[in-house]
């Protein structure tokens, strides 16, 4: 088990560096290229959601923990802003977004589609988004079992 913690106190401009750091960590954890893209995208979306909705476009503290083993990586993203508005959990459909000419509403949908498990917890003024990405089974491991 490998555990990595990142502490941030920043704004939108940090998202580029954050994506690069997450991608580099996932490369070292030997995730494949597509999974790395999905994990950094999910972290990007979660981070932007925190800045826009939890901290209302102001700066604030964000803590990211990554726990990785040979089967999966679990990412916990914590902030101490406003609780997640439950109406944001009601996902917009693509046709709603197109017909209502909305430019927002895809972030949570993206996180759910890109990651294997997603859970939001609010406890003692701390928002925690827990996301799990399972590793793709390597071909040689699959063939070894058959």
């Amino acid at each position: 088990m490998k555990k990595i913690e990142l502490a941030l106190h920043e704004d939108f401009s940090t998202v580029t560096e954050l994506r690069n750091v997450i991608a580099e960590i996932c490369r070292r954890l030997e995730f494949d290229k597509q999974d790395i893209y999905h994990i950094k995208s999910a972290v990007d979306e979660a981070f932007i959601n925190i800045i826009q909705h939890s901290y209302k476009n102001k700066t604030g503290d964000v803590k990211i923990e990554l726990d990785a083993d040979d089967k999966k990586v679990t990412i916990r993203i914590m902030d101490w802003g406003e609780p997640l508005d439950k109406t944001h959990l009601r996902r917009s459909s693509l046709s709603d977004i197109i017909n209502e000419q909305k430019e927002h509403g895809l972030g949570l949908l993206m996180i759910e589609r890109l990651m294997d498990k997603v859970k939001y917890v609010r406890r003692k003024k701390t928002n925690t988004l827990i996301m799990v990405k399972r590793r793709k089974e390597k071909l040689h491991e699959r063939s070894r079992r058959t």
């Binding site: 979306e45 932007i48 197109i98 909305k102 927002h104 993206m110």
Partner: peptide
């Protein structure tokens, strides 16, 4: 990102 897809879907 979703912001990029969103600008396209919005048009």
């Amino acid at each position: 990102s979703s912001a990029g897809w969103g600008v396209i879907l919005g048009r």
